[in-house]
């Protein structure tokens, strides 16, 4: 194309096998999903084998490790519990992330069918499907997540910017100043002393 006649001629054409090896992202509409399927029951076995040591037998999370299930209707509460079931807007993200980056420390070791089964099990752990539910490349994109409508695009320009623009107060800005919170009361800062 003439527009690129003056390019640098650097790099070389990527081969289809190379693109296939690295381009694994999956979009909300299912683009990028490989053919495959798996049911929640099978997923439970794989999950127990490869995931439960951190995420718990029921995807409830162990210790400080992420909880993948629970937390429905907590997003407007004091300590919201954000899980795949309570928070994630698209199921594609769960498939994509597990496929590319889990298990933690042994990423990219799962077969496509294993990922389908495991995602089905996570849905089951969130009480969103029965244990015989089969997830596949055919039905994944159509699965409606509970919090699918829970997101808005960054609106700071409208909701904040207009409030906090302009010449600020310089003198007599408030009558009194009282300490309302102190970090030393919490006492959770690491000891930064260098014992000499």
């Amino acid at each position: 194309a003439p527009a690129y006649a003056d390019n640098f001629g650097l790099g070389r054409e990527a081969l289809p096998e190379e693109i296939a090896a690295w381009d694994k992202d999956v979009s909300p509409d299912g683009t990028g999903l490989p053919v495959g399927s798996g049911d929640a029951y099978t997923g439970e076995e794989i999950f127990a084998d490869k995931c439960a040591v951190c995420h718990g037998d029921f995807a409830e999370g162990l210790g400080n490790w992420p909880k993948l299930a629970g937390g429905r209707d907590t997003l407007d509460r004091e300590d919201p519990l954000k899980t795949v079931g309570s928070y994630w807007p698209h199921l594609s993200t769960a498939w994509d992330y597990i496929n590319r980056s889990m298990p933690y420390g042994d990423a990219q070791s799962l077969e496509a069918d294993e990922v389908y089964a495991m995602v089905a099990y996570i849905l089951y752990s969130n009480d969103l499907v029965d244990d015989d539910f089969v997830l596949s490349n055919e039905n994944l994109a159509d699965f409606e997540m509970p919090n699918a409508d829970g997101f808005i695009i960054d609106d700071r320009i409208e909701t904040e910017f207009s409030k906090w623009v302009g010449e600020p107060c310089m003198e007599n800005c408030k009558d009194n100043v009282e300490v309302t919170m102190r970090a030393l009361v919490l006492d959770v800062t690491p000891d930064v002393a260098t014992d000499e």
């Binding site: 979009s27 909300p28 997003l75 407007d76 954000k82 980056s101 829970g150 997101f151 960054d154």
Partner: peptide, 23 residues
Amino acid sequence: GPVESREETSKYTDTLEDGTSRK
């Protein structure tokens, strides 16, 4: 379109008081 990957859905989204979240 955007992939809506884990790092722009589960993480790096900002939950507001009413339970909706900015992305």
